[in-house]
Amino acid sequence: MPVKVAIIDYGMGNLYSVRNTFVSLGISADIIEKAGDDKIFSYDKLILPGVGAFGDAMKELKKRGFIIPIKDFVGLGRPLLGICLGMQLLLDKSEESRSTVGLGIIQGVVKKFSSRLKCPHMGWNAIEARSRAGSIFKNIKSPFFAYFCHSYYARPAKRSAVIGETEYGIRFASMIQAGRVYGMQFHPEKSQEMGIKLLRNFITQC
């Protein structure tokens, strides 16, 4: 049976480019705007994309009834991929909005880059896969390049959650994983071949 993918729409960001990438891979992906009853449980994999601010995003996820279903979905051991802000939302909290509680699916915090650096960190940078990294990196040689655009970065509490690292003033976690939950700080949908491979691996290998 073909894999069913849902892209969570919380009113922020360019969801169509994520969907376009799946379409090009022959994978159908639905954009869902509201959690509704058990809607997301009819899907095999969830994508949490997004650009914008941490606080607004959590507020919007809550308003649309997504928070509990997302937590339940991953609680059942089903795969989720957070992209860019979507990855940051997986953590407990962010310096971007100190009063906001994140999804708390992966322990850790989101911090702002040093003011000495140009911000946002925008453009192509290298990702080094850590050795324990698994199937998400199938057929991908490390280091590889991807397109970034962000001013905050994730710092997971457990080192073991970091599966990819990138250098920008510091070494930060550009890919994280806990169980079947993955986060990519860069935009795979904007990272040409490598990004497409990663998305394909998430669907077929993870």
Binding site: Y16, S17, N20, V23, S24, Y147, K190, S191
Partner: peptide, 8 residues
């Protein structure tokens, strides 16, 4: 363009 290229 957005449907056909995967870069910003």
């Amino acid at each position: 363009v957005a449907k056909n290229i995967f870069m910003p």
